[in-house]
Simulated scan of single mutants.
Amino acid sequence: MTARALLVRGLIAGLLAGVATFLVAHQVGEPPVETAISLEESSAHHSGATAGAHSHDSEEAVVSRETQRTWGLLTGTLTVGTALGGLVALGSALVAGRVGRLRPTAATAVVALTGFTTVAFVPFLKYPANPPGVGTAETIGARTEQYFGFLLVSLVTGILALVLAGQVWPRFGTWGAVVMGVAAYVVVTSVAATLMPGPDAVGSFPADTLWAFRRGSLLTLVTLWAGIGVVLSGLVGRLEKHETAKSQRRALAASL
Rank of each mutant, 00 (worst) to 15 (best):
residue 100 G to T: 08
residue 162 L to K: 00
residue 173 G to T: 14
residue 183 A to W: 12
residue 190 S to G: 13
residue 128 P to Q: 02
residue 73 L to V: 08
residue 183 A to C: 12
residue 166 G to N: 08
residue 189 T to V: 15
residue 138 E to W: 04
residue 177 A to T: 01
residue 158 G to E: 00
residue 186 V to A: 15
residue 74 L to E: 15
residue 130 N to K: 11
residue 94 L to N: 06
residue 146 Q to C: 05
residue 89 A to E: 09
residue 157 T to H: 02
residue 169 W to H: 14
residue 80 V to D: 01
residue 146 Q to M: 08
residue 133 G to A: 12
residue 130 N to A: 14
residue 148 F to E: 08
residue 94 L to Y: 11
residue 85 G to F: 04
residue 85 G to N: 13
residue 170 P to T: 06
residue 121 F to C: 04
residue 174 T to H: 13
residue 118 T to E: 04
residue 185 Y to A: 08
residue 102 L to T: 00
residue 191 V to P: 02
residue 174 T to C: 09
residue 145 E to D: 05
residue 142 A to F: 04
residue 109 A to S: 05
residue 197 P to W: 15
residue 96 A to T: 15
residue 147 Y to M: 08
residue 114 T to D: 00
residue 178 V to D: 10
residue 98 R to A: 14
residue 117 T to F: 07
residue 166 G to L: 08
residue 112 A to T: 08
residue 147 Y to E: 06
residue 136 T to Y: 13
residue 107 A to P: 04
residue 131 P to E: 11
residue 101 R to I: 09
residue 117 T to S: 11
residue 143 R to C: 03
residue 183 A to R: 12
residue 122 V to A: 03
residue 92 S to A: 15
residue 185 Y to Q: 07
residue 90 L to T: 14
residue 137 A to Y: 09
residue 158 G to M: 00
residue 190 S to M: 12
residue 132 P to A: 13
residue 189 T to A: 07
residue 166 G to P: 06
residue 113 L to M: 03
residue 183 A to P: 10
residue 121 F to G: 04
residue 79 T to D: 01
residue 141 G to I: 07
residue 119 V to K: 03
residue 189 T to E: 05
residue 128 P to K: 00
residue 133 G to R: 10
residue 147 Y to W: 10
residue 116 F to A: 04
residue 93 A to R: 05
residue 100 G to F: 07
residue 111 V to D: 01
residue 182 V to L: 06
residue 137 A to F: 09
residue 149 G to A: 05
residue 136 T to D: 14
residue 177 A to P: 00
residue 134 V to R: 05
residue 196 M to H: 12
residue 116 F to E: 02
residue 120 A to W: 03
residue 127 Y to I: 05
residue 80 V to F: 00
residue 82 T to D: 10
residue 85 G to V: 10
residue 150 F to T: 02
residue 104 P to Q: 11
residue 135 G to C: 12
residue 132 P to W: 12
residue 76 G to C: 12
residue 166 G to M: 09
residue 126 K to F: 10
residue 141 G to E: 10
residue 84 L to R: 00
residue 140 I to G: 03
residue 143 R to S: 12
residue 98 R to P: 11
residue 78 L to W: 15
residue 84 L to Y: 05
residue 75 T to A: 14
residue 128 P to M: 01
residue 75 T to R: 13
residue 185 Y to D: 05
residue 76 G to M: 10
residue 118 T to R: 02
residue 156 V to F: 10
residue 73 L to H: 05
residue 183 A to S: 14
residue 188 V to R: 04
residue 128 P to E: 01
residue 110 V to T: 06
residue 176 G to C: 01
residue 148 F to T: 10
residue 106 A to D: 00
residue 83 A to H: 13
residue 157 T to A: 10
residue 77 T to K: 03
residue 126 K to Q: 14
residue 194 T to Q: 15
residue 80 V to A: 01
residue 166 G to Q: 09
residue 148 F to H: 12
residue 141 G to C: 05
residue 134 V to I: 15
residue 149 G to C: 05
residue 129 A to D: 14
residue 119 V to S: 06
residue 183 A to V: 14
residue 123 P to M: 09
residue 185 Y to I: 05
residue 78 L to P: 14
residue 181 G to F: 05
residue 77 T to E: 12
residue 152 L to N: 15
residue 91 G to I: 07
residue 138 E to R: 07
residue 171 R to N: 10
residue 101 R to D: 15
residue 146 Q to T: 06
residue 113 L to C: 02
residue 150 F to S: 02
residue 188 V to G: 07
